[in-house]
Design a protein around this nucleic acid. Structure first.
Lengths: 106, 106
DNA sequence: CCATTATTTCGATTATTCTTGAATCATGGA
DNA sequence: TCCATGATTCAAGAATAATCGAAATAATGG
C-alpha cells in the first residue's frame, strides 16, 4: 500500500459521518448495506451520504455492487488490514513493542 | 476511546508530513526523536514541523518530554492500538472475518 | 546577565473540504 | 412508453486546514 493510498484512506475515515458509515459496514460484514438503509440508520440526506460513500469508495475502503435498483456497499477488510499494517510496520526497529492484535473480537 | 478522539487521531495522520513524522517515531521506538532531528530527516522548516507535531500531540498520538534544551517526541503505542481496535471492533457481528494482526513484525 | 541554540506561537494568505438544494441518471413495473 | 423509486451529480457558498515569514519563549554555557 502506497503512502498516498494510506493518506487517502485515513482522510476518508477522519470524518464523523464517514466513520459512522464505515463502522456500520464493518459491523454488518459481508452482507453489506444499501444507501437507503444507511440513510435511515444514520439520519442523513441521500445526497450527503452519496458524497461520503464516494469518498470511501475512492479510498478503496468500501466496495460497491448493483443489485436491481439498489446498490450494496461493503467494507473492504483487505484494505483496512493493509492500512493497519502500514501504521505499525517496522515499529520499534524490530524490538519487542506493545502493539496489540487489531481485531479483539475475531 | 471516544469517536471524537478517533476522528482527531485519523485526521492527524491523514497528512503527508504528519504521517511521515509519526512513522519515523514509530520506527524509532521508545528512544524518540527531537524536532531538530525530524527537521533534518524530513527537510521541513522548524515552524511547519512544530505545527504538525502539535497536531499529533493534541491527537494523543505522540508524547512530549523536555530534555535540556531539546524536546523528545515519542509515538504513543497505546493510542495507536486503541485506534486500531476501534476500527475493527465488533466486525462482522462476531462472525469469522479476515482481519489480520496489526503488527506483522513484532 | 548576555549570547546562542532549540523550539514554538502568531497573523495573514491561500488552498481544500463540507454542506445544501436542484437537477440528473438508472432500474423495474404498470 | 411513462412513472415511481433509489441513488448520484453538479454548482455555490460557508467552514476548515495548510503554509510561510516574523517574532516570541525556553534553556544552556560563558
Amino acid at each position: 500500500m502506497e503512502e498516498s493510498d494510506v493518506i487517502r484512506a485515513l482522510a476518508a475515515l477522519a470524518h464523523s459521518m464517514r466513520l459512522k458509515v464505515f463502522r456500520a459496514l464493518v459491523v454488518t460484514g459481508p452482507a453489506g448495506l444499501t444507501p437507503g438503509a444507511l440513510c435511515e440508520a444514520l439520519e442523513v440526506a441521500p445526497n450527503t451520504l452519496s458524497f461520503h460513500l464516494k469518498e470511501l469508495l475512492h479510498a478503496g475502503l468500501v466496495t460497491q455492487q448493483r443489485d436491481g435498483r439498489n446498490l450494496i456497499y461493503r467494507a473492504s477488510f483487505e484494505r483496512m488490514t493493509g492500512l493497519l499494517a502500514f501504521l505499525t510496520a517496522n515499529c520499534c526497529q524490530g524490538e519487542a513493542c506493545l502493539a496489540a492484535p487489531a481485531c479483539a473480537t475475531c
